[in-house]
């Protein structure tokens, strides 16, 4: 479903991403690994259509990926940094808003929260979360919306071992349902457990 062919990113003579290729099929989890500065996040920005490659091309179902395209926005759920969160809504309100705007009538907020063991935070505002809780909530938001491809940038950051295990379970469940997952990751345990393939940059 997603193909990136020899994509690169450069600003003047500065190389942000050397040529890289990637192919992801439905029901597959691909981990992108590599040292800091190797271009993992840049590659994720290219395959989500948020950055045009300097060379090469990124295709979703054979069409160029473009964040302005409705098809791209509907197909890809991305966690690149902190997602937009309203300061006057609680955690539960945000998930209800996700369900309402995607018209997911059968969806359950409690189930979304339980997936990352944050049900107790339902009535908290975003500014009342610790950084680890905020990461869990960001993951809950990303997994709550419908998508064919989930893109995660270092999803394990600020998580303890137990919560990293929950993240692995969420990825495995998404893959089992036929969703594709691409994640840039530094946690070898998570990669070993959740990813079918690994691309080293």
């Amino acid at each position: 479903m997603l193909t990136a062919i020899e994509v690169t990113a450069r600003i003047d003579d500065q190389v942000l991403l050397p040529p890289a290729s990637l192919e992801v099929a439905e029901g597959e989890c691909v981990a992108i690994t590599g040292p800091n500065g190797s271009g993992k996040t840049t590659l994720l920005r290219i395959i989500t259509g948020r950055l045009a490659p300097t060379e090469g091309e990124a295709l979703l179902d054979g069409e160029p990926v473009d964040e302005r395209s409705a098809a791209t926005r509907a197909s890809i759920a991305a966690l690149l940094g902190v997602p937009a969160m309203y300061p006057d809504l609680t955690i539960g309100d945000h998930l209800e808003l996700v369900h309402a705007t995607w018209q997911l009538e059968a969806a359950d907020v409690d189930a979304d929260l339980d997936r990352f063991s944050i049900a107790a935070l339902r009535d908290r505002f975003v500014h009342e979360l610790s950084s680890g809780q905020q990461q869990l909530f960001s993951l809950a938001l990303t997994f709550a919306r419908p998508a064919r491809l989930i893109v995660l940038d270092e999803p394990e950051q600020r998580l303890d071992a137990h919560r990293t295990g929950l993240l692995a379970e969420a990825v495995e469940a998404a893959v089992a349902e036929g969703q594709a997952v691409v994640m840039a990751c530094h946690d070898h345990g998570l990669v070993e457990r959740a990813a079918q393939r690994r691309v080293e940059l």
């Binding site: 926005r73 509907a74 690149l80 940094g81 937009a84 309203y86 808003l97 996700v98 995607w102 919306r145």
Partner: peptide, 20 residues
């Protein structure tokens, strides 16, 4: 217009909500 301001300021982030 807090909602408008917040939404406009964050429109470059990946979409979470299902509206254009």
């Amino acid at each position: 217009s807090d909602g408008l301001r917040f939404s406009a300021a964050n429109r470059s982030r990946p979409p979470v909500f299902g509206l254009t």
